[in-house]
Write a protein that binds this DNA or RNA. Structure first.
Lengths: 198, 198
DNA sequence: GGTGCAGTTCACGCGGTCTTGAACTATATG
DNA sequence: CATATAGTTCAAGACCGCGTGAACTGCACC
C-alpha cells in the first residue's frame, strides 16, 4: 500500500532513520508497534496499545511527558489515551511521593485486563445485539404467514447470541472461557438441502 | 469504541426507518442490522454482515439485483460485497437451472464459517504479530545491559502470542477452542509491587 | 501575585475507508 | 448481429475517526 519511504532502495535502512527516534530502542519499537497492531485489530486505537505496551515493557511508571517523547505523540493525545486506558482498567495512575507529576503503570495481570475489557465493552455490546434479535423475533412472531423455516433461522441467531453472552459473563466471573456449547448447536443444519459447491 | 451509531434503543427501532425500506419486513431489517453491527464490530464491513444475514434469513438464494433492492445498496457495491463474502467462504454462488442470473446462498454451517474466517484472517495476522515479537526478542537479547525483568516481560508477550496462535490453529482443525492454557500463564505477576487502585 | 509546568479540552485538518455511479465487459435472447 | 440484462471495475466523492496543536485550567513553588 504505502511505500513511498523506500525510495532509497534496500541499501542503507538504519542509517537515515527520519529524525529523532525519541529514545525508544529498536526492539522496543517493534514490540510496541506489534501490540499496537493487535489492539487496533481488536477495535481499539492503535496508540492505546502502544502506550500500554510501553508501560508494560518498562515496568516502572512513566509520566505523560515521557510517553509523549518516547512514542512521539502530542500532549493532548497522550492525555486522552491515558484517560481511556485508565477507564478500561488497563493502566493505573500513581503519584510518587516526592514527584509532582502523575505517573502511569501498566496493569500486569493480563487476565484481569482482558476480563475488565470484556466486561465493559464486549458484554454490553453483545447484550445489545441479543436484545435486538429478541425484538426481531418478537415482531416476526406477531405476524402471520412467515415460513416456520425462517423463524427457525432467526431463532438460531438469537440463541447464538444468548450463548455467546452467557459464555462471556461466565468468563468474567471465572476467567474461564468455555465456548464448547456455543457453536455446537449449529453444527450444520437440518432441514435445508445442502447446496453443492459451485 | 465504535458502536454508538446503531438504531434507537429497544423502544422504537422500527418506527422511523429512514425512507423506503425496499421490501424488507421490519423484523428482517432489525435482524439484518443487528448482524451488520456485530460484523462491523468484528472488523468487517457492516454491509457484508447485512448481506449475509439477509441471505441466511431468507433461506433461498437471491440474485444480486434482489439484494440490491432489499438492502438499498448500489449495484457495484453489491458486486464487491458478494465477491468478498464468497472469498471468505461465507456465501455460495449457485446457478439455478432455468434462471439466467447467478444466485447467492448463505453458508448455513456457522461452525464452518467461523473456521474459515479465522483461518484466512486471524491466523495469518496472529502469526505476523508472533513473528514481530520474536524479532524484538531476538534484537533485545543481542544487546547487553537490558534489565532481565524487561526481557522477561517481552518473553511473556511472545509466549502469549504463541499460545494464542496455537489455540487458533487447533480450533481450525478441531472446531474446539481451548484457551485454558493461554491466559493461565499470566495469572498476575511476581516481582512488581501491585496494589492500591487510584 | 507571578512564573512555570502538568494536564485537559476541543475545533480543525489529514488520512483512510466505504459507497456511489458510470463506463465497461460478459452473457444470454430474439 | 443487435439488444438487453447481469456483473465487474474503478475513479471521484462522501464520510468519519484520529491526532494535532493551541487555548485553557489547575496547581505548586518562589
Amino acid at each position: 500500500m504505502k511505500g513511498y519511504l523506500w525510495t532509497g532502495g534496500p541499501g542503507s535502512p538504519a542509517s537515515e532513520v527520519p529524525a529523532q527516534e525519541g529514545k525508544l530502542a529498536p526492539w522496543e519499537a517493534i514490540a510496541v508497534d506489534a501490540v499496537g497492531n493487535v489492539i487496533e485489530f481488536w477495535g481499539f486505537k492503535r496508540n492505546q496499545g502502544r502506550v500500554w505496551a510501553l508501560l508494560y515493557l518498562r515496568g516502572e511508571p512513566l509520566t505523560a511527558g515521557e510517553i509523549e517523547r518516547e512514542l512521539d505523540l502530542s500532549k493532548g493525545g497522550v492525555s486522552m489515551l491515558l484517560r481511556d486506558l485508565e477507564r478500561w482498567g488497563v493502566i493505573q495512575r500513581v503519584r510518587l511521593p516526592q514527584d509532582s507529576a502523575w505517573r502511569y503503570a501498566a496493569e500486569t495481570d493480563l487476565v484481569r485486563m482482558v476480563t475488565h475489557v470484556i466486561e465493559e465493552r464486549e458484554a454490553g455490546f453483545v447484550a445489545r445485539i441479543r436484545a435486538d434479535l429478541a425484538e426481531a423475533r418478537r415482531l416476526a412472531q406477531s405476524v402471520t404467514g412467515i415460513p416456520g423455516e425462517r423463524l427457525a433461522r432467526l431463532e438460531k441467531m438469537t440463541t447464538l447470541a444468548e450463548h455467546v453472552e452467557r459464555a462471556l459473563r461466565l468468563f468474567i466471573k471465572t476467567s474461564r472461557l468455555d465456548v464448547s456449547g456455543v457453536l455446537a448447536v449449529f453444527r450444520d443444519e437440518a432441514g435445508t438441502p445442502r447446496r453443492e459447491k459451485r
